[in-house]
Write a protein that binds this DNA or RNA. Structure first.
Length: 572
RNA sequence: UGUCCUGUGGUGUAAUUGGCAACACGUCUGACUCUGGAUCAGAAGUCUCCAGGUUCGAGUCCUGGCAGGACAACCA
């Protein structure tokens, strides 16, 4: 292999502190130049965009270093965990484009080995059964700024500890009666080292081991062991586990087991978004959204239903980078990723979201023309299609103004615009409803020689608008989604009472029926993605669409320079 | 009055390990355009948290501050 090429490829890889650490390890030979990562979700909720960052990181690193990544369910708390979540997590990781092959593991697979090692810990005098109440234990633990004190049960004999632990296992005691604790240091400045819990009694059925166990290992104990059993080299987790690393190392050292390296990075935060599982669960449970896969949710399943592509999310994950400082990513970065992807790949159609009738008074009543339209100007391989045109059309209500503001390039009395793929027209009048004051219909004349591709077509007009032939139009429902929160930091005024709810955007979903679309769009299959020209990217909803009756979700709007201009002048 | 971690344009992330602070998103101009999209060209914006020190030279090393975050579940 050519070294220059290797060096060149290396240069193109993103640079971050984790890669630096791995490079050092590879140089020193600590893991024999091996990289083996894992993605370890707890199956107690749906995955969100923050998890996507972690997934891309773990799988991406392994790929770049010719290693592998395990999917491991960290299922040590049967009370909150469920197979529903296991299934959704599997689906989401797969959908994102990652393959864990046959390496699907569960912490619960290791319960037997973990138990045996716990007995060893006891035998070594490094763990004991505490019989204090939970409240007492909390009290004994002390504060971050002041040391804790030792439990009166701390010095039970190995025999007594072993006996008690075995009886815990057989179900002789009630929850909370006893607990296995590591014997470390009650005066440690690191709270995690003040005799942390190792095993607790929980008499609930586990989604995999059912009723085999009534004692379950705690995270700190289970996680390092699982990593060790699987031969993980780099155990990558988020910053809040930083203070747990000494404990991670302690268990492995005392048990003399293979020792992976834990590395922490800063979790993803997104503006205008909440990311905590607890809050997302709350939104679902209290019906602020339609479920975990509501298109406004930052969950992977929500983004998928919204119309995001796997590659746009991977691209996003790469763009935000990896570091150790707290961060808030502008949601515009995410939106940029999906626009960028869909611009290249989504076929274009004309769809009128808020229709108003337009009649071309000098166009013959019964004529129909089929006009050529480009499916994607970014990709000529996507071909052309025919769009029916006639005397009666629908156009976007907002593309007409009786009294246009400055710089308005669209339709108003006397103005000329291009009908996309069709003719240049001039607005000759309109009909207003006397009672409502609403405009009912717009009248125009067309210039026959200005047809797209025709002789007079090269004439320039200021604006081009989209349209749909009235008699050919399909009638569909569109769901215009917007950000769920209208404050960049919804948690700013959060409290236990759910203060973040005051920032919920009341306009995060607008359901619009009777949108007029090109007839072909009626055949859209659930999940199909499109650009509605001049409007935005849409996809056919996977839950609400029925055959011949698609419901279109707005994934994201097109960049709208005019809206920006108009807002600015309005605000002046 | 603790321990650990982190401070680089508005927001993120880099900086060949001590050598002209770069890239992306966003913002603003202009060009082009049968999408007010895309594309192209350009601009503004960082005295690298502060104060000292070492050095010919410091974002990077040293000392001292300051600010922010994490930690007090039998959750993960």
């Amino acid at each position: 292999m050519n070294e220059n090429i290797d060096a060149q490829e290396k240069k193109d890889l993103p640079s971050n502190f984790i890669r630096d650490i791995i490079d050092e390890h590879n140089l020193s030979g600590r893991f024999g130049a091996k990289v083996h990562t894992r993605f370890p979700p707890e199956p107690n909720g749906y995955l969100h965009i923050g998890h996507a960052k972690s997934i891309c990181l773990n799988f991406g690193l392994a790929k770049d270093y010719n290693g592998a990544t395990n999917l491991r369910f960290d299922d040590t708390n049967p009370v909150t965990e469920d197979v529903e979540y296991v299934d959704s997590i599997r689906e989401d990781v797969k959908w994102l484009g990652f393959d864990w092959e046959d390496r699907e593991f569960y912490a619960s697979d290791y319960f037997d080995r973990m138990y045996e090692l716990a007995e060893i810990l006891i035998e070594k005098g490094l763990a004991y059964i505490d019989s204090l109440t939970p409240e007492e234990i909390r009290h004994y633990r002390g504060w971050p700024t002041s040391p804790g004190k030792e439990s009166p049960y701390r010095n039970r004999s190995v025999e007594e500890n072993l006996d008690l632990f075995r009886r815990m296992k057989t179900g002789e005691f009630n929850e909370g009666d006893h607990i296995l604790r590591a014997k470390i240091d009650m005066s440690s400045p690191n709270m995690n080292m003040r005799d942390p819990a190792v095993y607790r009694i929980k008499k609930s059925s586990h989604h995999r081991t059912k009723d085999k166990w009534c004692i379950y290992p705690m995270y700190d104990y289970a996680h390092c062991l699982s990593d060790s059993f699987e031969g993980i080299t780099h155990s990558i987790c988020t910053l809040e586990f930083e203070n747990h690393r000494p404990l991670y190392d302690w268990f492995l050292d005392k048990l003399e087991l293979y020792h992976p390296q834990q590395i922490e990075f800063a979790r993803l935060n997104l503006s205008y978004t909440v990311m905590s599982k607890r809050k997302l669960l709350f939104l679902v449970k209290e019906k602020y959204v339609d479920g975990w896969d509501d298109p406004r949710m930052p969950t992977i399943s929500g983004l998928r239903r919204r119309g995001y592509t796997p590659s746009s999310i991977r691209d996003f994950a790469e763009k935000v980078g990896v570091a150790r400082r707290d961060n808030v990513i502008d949601v515009a970065v995410l939106e940029h990723s999906i626009r960028n992807d869909l611009n290249k790949h989504a076929s274009r159609y004309m769809a009128v979201i808020n229709p108003i009738k337009l009649t071309i008074i000098n166009y013959p009543e019964n004529d129909i023309e089929y006009l050529e339209a480009v499916n994607n100007p970014e990709d000529s391989a996507m071909g052309m299609r025919k769009v029916p045109f006639s005397r009666h059309l629908f156009i976007e209500r907002d593309d007409f103004r009786e009294d246009p503001p400055k710089k308005f390039h669209r339709l108003f009395p006397g103005s000329e615009v291009r009908l996309r793929y069709a003719y240049i027209i001039i607005c000759t009048g309109f009909k207003k409803n006397d009672i409502s004051g609403e405009i009912d219909e717009i009248y125009c004349e067309y210039y026959p020689d200005t047809k797209s591709g025709g002789l007079g077509a090269s004439r320039k007009v200021k604006g081009t608008i989209h349209w749909v032939s009235a008699s050919h139009a399909g009638n569909v429902e569109a769901r215009l989604y917007d950000r769920l929160f209208n404050h960049p930091d919804p948690l700013e005024s959060d409290d236990d009472a759910g203060g973040f709810l005051q920032h919920i955007n009341p306009d995060s979903l607008k359901i619009v029926s009777n949108c007029k679309v090109e007839p072909e769009l009626l055949n859209a299959k659930p999940g199909d993605r499109f650009q509605f020209e001049r409007v935005g990217y849409f996809c056919a909803d996977t839950k609400l669409s029925t055959s011949g009756n698609p419901v279109f979700n707005r994934t994201v709007t097109l960049k709208d320079t005019w809206a920006k201009i108009e807002n600015q002048t309005n605000n002046q």
